[in-house]
Design a protein around this nucleic acid. Structure first.
Length: 481
DNA sequence: TCTGGGGTCCTAGGACCC
DNA sequence: TCTGGGGTCCTAGGACCC
């Protein structure tokens, strides 16, 4: 069977029982004993079990309660110290980057290395074997005793399978040409992308091994699993895997979610949870300097059914207040009366700059009128008493579920998410502030193309503690209709 | 005492536009 | 006056991975 790469140049490296191993390294009394790291609450699951704990049947993704049942007294159940894990992870990844510039970090404890991009004096199988053996030893040395397993093959899939063949601490090389001989006897679950659901369906067709999968026609696989998945299975069953080792990937979404200790049905408490999640999400967007347009709320019921509701804003945001409002609106569309076991908030449609401010500026540029704007009269009049600092002007923009007014006035004293009441369009809220402008979003569609009034704060010295009432400041131009 | 949290990719249907 | 097809965007859900 032809292999995409002529040489076994892909290395997969996996740190053994990583979280548990770090705990045992840092706390000698845990060495030789079963250690389970993961959620310790009554709804927790196991992230990593030490090899001692695995001997009793503890496994990753198993409910911690189940692991407690299986493991003997004296087993350590730990919540995890992610900063410590990150530190050791960085040490390892840096060592890998010394070998080759092309390193793809899959997770804290796993990476692919393209040895084809490495500056090696020799690329014979023996030389690669020696190189990786030395690398594993250095990893143990530099991390104070952690071990890693490695696999080298002609593709990512085969390298990953190879790294699993001699754990912990082993190295397996699959020479070119041997791929299908190794692959075909394995259960279908060995193929990347075959999880419990796909495996069960394949079993239903009598397909148990990858060799069996290879005998299923492409047409059948596509008919059963769809275009992308079907084609992927067809190729991977033949060890055809040309996926490149990719050093960097663009973040597509950021999310925060939390499983409650007990189900929550109370509207107030759900609202507060949502606020908390949204703030944490905004903080993470902030440190990543990311902004997103689509907000998604995730809810899981007691029976584990999971539903999502998403809404796309006119412009990207990173503001907690904006996220909170949209998240609350979205949660309002799901029936939570029977309680939720999990609540989550996410943002996608990411950009690395806030279009919000840009938009504010553009709209303000289109609509702002004043003594300093000589072209105002040519675009229609937005007249207001000049020189009155409390007056405002507005532009409006429609979206599928609401419209916005762009208010020109000082931004001080306004914060996103703030309620704006007593407008003739019903309640609104501050969607964004910046560059001396305030955007207000009104809920509900703009039904009639009638004139739009703008709203001015009746008190320029507004405080956060005292949300403003807005009053119409004068007749304005209607939407372009 | 069932089942975390952070992601990715795919599908399918509807809206809307040309 | 009958009924095009493609492309894009959006939403909801599902499968999978670590």
């Amino acid at each position: 069977m032809p292999s995409p790469r002529p040489e076994a140049s892909i290395l997969h490296l996996d740190l053994d029982a990583f979280f548990a191993a770090v705990e045992q390294r840092d706390k000698p009394s845990l060495r030789g004993k079963p250690v389970v790291v993961g959620g310790t609450g009554h709804r927790g699951v196991v992230a990593t079990a030490s090899y001692e704990a695995r001997a009793y049947g503890a496994r990753s993704a198993m409910p911690t309660a189940e692991a407690r049942r299986r493991c003997p007294p004296g087993t350590a159940f730990l919540g995890g110290r992610f900063e410590a894990y990150r530190v050791s992870s960085r040490v390892v990844m840096d060592l890998l980057r010394e070998v080759s510039k092309v390193v793809e970090q899959v997770s804290v404890d796993e990476a692919y290395v393209d040895l084809g991009a490495a500056d090696l004096p020799e690329k014979s199988p023996d030389a690669v074997q020696a190189l990786v053996t030395g690398l594993l030893a250095r990893i143990t040395e530099e991390t104070g005793g952690l071990t890693a397993s490695a696999g080298v093959a002609t593709s990512k899939m085969m390298a990953k399978l190879a790294s699993e063949m001699d754990k912990p601490g082993g190295l397996t090389v699959i020479p070119p040409g041997n791929e299908t001989r190794v692959l075909h006897p394995l259960p279908v679950r060995a193929v990347a992308g075959v999880g419990p659901a796909t495996a069960a369906r394949l079993h239903g067709f009598g397909v148990e091994t990858v060799g069996g999968l290879e005998r299923v026609s492409l047409a059948d696989l596509v008919a059963i699993f769809g275009q992308a998945h079907g084609q992927g299975l067809h190729r991977l069953a033949r060890a055809l895997d040309e996926r490149a080792v990719v050093t960097e990937r663009e973040t597509k979404s950021v999310s925060v979610e939390e499983t409650c200790e007990t189900d929550i049905a109370d509207q107030n408490r759900l609202g507060h949870e949502l606020d908390d999640l949204s703030r944490r999400l905004a903080a993470r967007l902030g440190t990543a300097a990311l902004f997103g347009r689509t907000i998604t709320v995730k809810a899981r019921r007691h029976d584990f059914t999971t539903l999502t509701r998403s809404g796309t804003l006119p412009h990207a945001t990173g503001e907690a207040g904006v996220i909170v409002r949209e998240a609350r609106r979205l949660l309002g569309t799901v029936d939570t009366s029977t309680g939720l076991r999990l609540l989550g908030v996410g943002v996608s449609g990411l950009t690395d700059h806030a279009q919000e401010e840009l938009m504010l500026e553009q709209l303000a540029g289109l609509t702002r009128v004043g003594p300093d704007r000589s072209d105002a009269s040519s675009r229609g009049d937005w007249d207001h008493p000049p020189g009155n600092p409390a007056d405002s002007q507005a532009a409006q923009a429609e979206s599928s579920d609401g419209w916005m007014a762009i208010i020109e006035r000082r931004a001080a004293g306004w914060h996103t998410g703030q309620d704006v009441r007593h407008t003739e369009r019903g309640p609104g809220w501050v969607w964004g502030t910046g560059r001396g402008l305030v955007t207000v979003r009104f809920e509900g569609p703009l039904t009639a193309p009638g004139p739009i009034r703008t709203y001015a704060a009746d008190d320029p010295g507004l405080s956060h503690a005292d949300p403003p009432d807005w009053r119409p400041s004068g007749e304005e131009r209607g939407p372009a209709a």
